[in-house]
Nucleic acid binder design. Sequence first.
DNA 1: TTGTAGGCGTTATCAG
DNA 2: CTGATAACGCCTACAA
Lengths: 341, 341
Amino acid sequence: MTVTIKDVAKLANVAPSTVSRVIADNPRISEETKIRVRKAMEKLGYHPNLIARSLASKSTQSIGLVMPSSADKVFQNPFFPEVIRGISKGAHEKEYSLYWSTGETTDEIYEGVVQMVQGRRVDGLVLLYSRFDDEVVNYLQKNNFPFVVIGKPYKDIEQITHVDNDNFRASKEVTEYLIGLGHERIAFVGGSLSLVVTIDRLLGYETAIKNAGLPNRDEYISNEEFLKEGGQEAITELLSLSEPPTALVVADDLMALGVVNKLDEIGKVVPDDISVVSFNNVLLTEISRPPLTSVDINIFRLGYEAAKNLIEKVEDPQEPVKRIIIPHQLIKRQSCGEIEA
Amino acid sequence: MTVTIKDVAKLANVAPSTVSRVIADNPRISEETKIRVRKAMEKLGYHPNLIARSLASKSTQSIGLVMPSSADKVFQNPFFPEVIRGISKGAHEKEYSLYWSTGETTDEIYEGVVQMVQGRRVDGLVLLYSRFDDEVVNYLQKNNFPFVVIGKPYKDIEQITHVDNDNFRASKEVTEYLIGLGHERIAFVGGSLSLVVTIDRLLGYETAIKNAGLPNRDEYISNEEFLKEGGQEAITELLSLSEPPTALVVADDLMALGVVNKLDEIGKVVPDDISVVSFNNVLLTEISRPPLTSVDINIFRLGYEAAKNLIEKVEDPQEPVKRIIIPHQLIKRQSCGEIEA
DNA sequence: TTGTAGGCGTTATCAG
DNA sequence: CTGATAACGCCTACAA
């Protein structure tokens, strides 16, 4: 039925192994037989069976993606499409495909990872998140399977190749920016504390506050989910304080949008009544009104470098552990204002 | 090195084939040997090599995704994450994984499809778009490879299983809704005319206009890309008309957001000066100010049904061609106003 | 109920 | 430079 290497061999009057060599463009095959074989392939419409090849060569030319759990909610965040786009680009350049197991809960995800790894479906994995006590990381380390994480690993930083931003510094800079505008009551609205990125951003914020000699108020720190509802809940609490903040560092654009929206409902205007800066600089920040001042973390490149470095590691296991820091940049738009002294 | 079926067989004192049968939970294996074998598997930490299984069984338990080209831009549209989420859910229920080749241009995409199909990497495909003269569709039909399209196929509707909305009717209803509010100058801002969905929505709009006895003005019909910039360009042209529209039917939320944004810049207020309805009802519509009136097309379900029906077809080639229409619903928010007579 | 043997389509190892 | 032959790990008749 389907045309195999043998059919080609027969037609070209060579051994199957020769055909295989032609496919691999093995230099020790004479040009003429190559041509003959290629003609035969053409004529029969031959295409290699990649599954068979994988089995024999122990390489699939594909990399697996591991999404955070609760994929339902999180996927609404434009971060993921963008990072995947970067990964896709990086993979494509090396002619790799993407594979993706379909779990929802943490357990299902873990099970999916095991399937991909033990099932030999992928040559390596990229983790699209980094959270504390992630058993996926433990599993991969134990099995010595190639992987890279996007974000900062929660442990063994020196031993895990990862692609990250300097979130601590970014968050510190952003907070300093607000301080420079005259703000003294600055709140932090972060995402889940189980994500490493949240901690880094929180730390950066706190450091800036401390350095400026401002009081560190617990009630100014709020941690919700990485989505718009989270932002909305946070804001109501913050505004009910006796001394409500005049500026907000929000750890995610989508959340910030929720915040701005809620503020608008309440009748507070950004940036006149309250300033907002956030992270990620996704498309939405431009569309928002006012356009959001946000830290561009170069999501695409995060994904691109992750794929690229993973593949390098897959193809050369000797490749050293790497830590890649993607530069960030504060994009000033119109959600921050100066405070009158 | 890696533990195979043979190792398990040895430990359990059975033949490899028996182990294989235990894995498949073959009923003609006695309970006791099943238990014995399972213990051995456990002890050795055995996991089946899915590649080997695929080769032997000629089934991969995975389905491929085909994205529209120019994946760079299009992926910014929240439509895609959401359909993929649906597909993922549908696939997961049947224990399928997702596979994804990584091309950017139309040609690369096509090549990727051929690889997936001939390479036997996937059991079926879902096309996440539908456009005219799509060679991918031709190729799949010619090779009689299982696939379903999300949207309406550009040809052979009766022979291609697809999952779609009744976009014609939805668009007609939406236009009638505006007409009911008193609008007589209604413009249509659509996406690329090479997408089937655009045509359907345009037709629905035109039909409603005609039925209401309103003039059909060419200058009220504008087609741009499915993104926010498109919406912004469209609006400047429309407003420069001698008789600018008082209401807009916009074929995509993201585009609508661009429109509203632009309008705001110009100083026009929605819905007082101009009404806007759009399609898809993605998360953004709620966050927007004003919240957008939009047609909920149930993107998730579009993806879910696509996966489910594809898998049914994969597992039973006798499965008849199906056309699945996902219901839509107009979600009224605050972007439409009545016109004073 | 279980074992034997051949095959799935390639690649890789050895010869020659 | 090319050809046998043996893997790769699993599945599935066919036998027993």
